[in-house]
Computed example of a mutant assay.
Amino acid sequence: MSRKQLLWAVVAATLAVIVAVQVTSTSQDSSRFIAQADIPTVAPGVDVLAGVAEIPARVRGYDYRRDAFGDSWTDDTTAPGGRNGCDTRNDILDRDLSDKTYVSISRCPTAVATGTLHDPYTSVVVPFVRGNQTGAAVQIDHLVPLALAWDLGARNWSEEMRVRFANDPANLLAVDGPTNQDKGDKEPALWMPPNSAFHCQYSMQYIAVLRGYRLPVDAPSAAVLRDGARSCPTG
């Protein structure tokens, strides 16, 4: 995957003066946005978290249910080429992997059979081969984890909005499986990508998701995200 392709996969903007982002709200309680192919830059003096509410700390809820966000991936219009017969997971693999071969499975005519992941979280190269152990090597990460989003307010969303959030390409990234397991549902204050060179892109995309879905951020994580944004080039 080229640097430009990688950035397309993970970069969305937070403010017009930083990077361009298109936000489409379909109703008052549901929204989606599409990342643009741009390198994130931060204008001097701009607070990248402007407009994102801050709370003192995450309050973990123990009523979280994964199936509240849908019981599986969907084939929705929020994914690249949505309603193409391939579910969101297959679409993200196709978007983020390089050197791909394809196989037709079920209703998906272009499922990735083999490919290469240049993992942004670790900078390692991970081979992908479809099979029983596929999910162990390459996984699809929710940048803002579902359980975290639940604690930050998603428990009060409509089911439609939660399903949209779980399948929004702007909140999804193909990554190294063990590293994704290490992240779990941790907030930025407790986990950032081991590859520090990726902190700029990760922070900017994370903030874009928070803003796009009107989610708050805990104060310790806000400090970490601002620090990550400071590693971005100025513009």
Rank of each mutant, 00 (worst) to 15 (best):
G82D: 07
D99T: 08
S72F: 06
F33C: 13
V144H: 01
P56A: 12
V59G: 03
R95I: 06
V126E: 01
G153R: 12
A154N: 05
V112Y: 13
D38K: 11
V125F: 06
S72P: 05
D75Y: 02
E54I: 15
P127G: 03
L152C: 14
Y102Q: 07
W157N: 08
V144W: 00
T41M: 00
R58N: 14
P40C: 13
V42W: 08
I92H: 06
G85D: 06
D91Y: 11
R89Y: 09
L49F: 04
G45N: 14
L152D: 15
D67T: 07
C86S: 02
G131K: 07
A50S: 13
V112T: 11
V138K: 01
P44G: 08
T114P: 04
D75E: 02
M161Q: 12
R60D: 08
D99E: 13
A147I: 11
R60M: 05
D38S: 10
S106C: 06
R83I: 09
T78K: 07
N132H: 08
A37C: 09
G135T: 01
Q133Y: 01
D151W: 10
Q36K: 13
G51I: 10
S104M: 03
R83C: 11
I39H: 13
P145I: 03
S72R: 13
A147T: 07
Q36N: 10
I105G: 04
I92V: 09
P44K: 13
V129E: 07
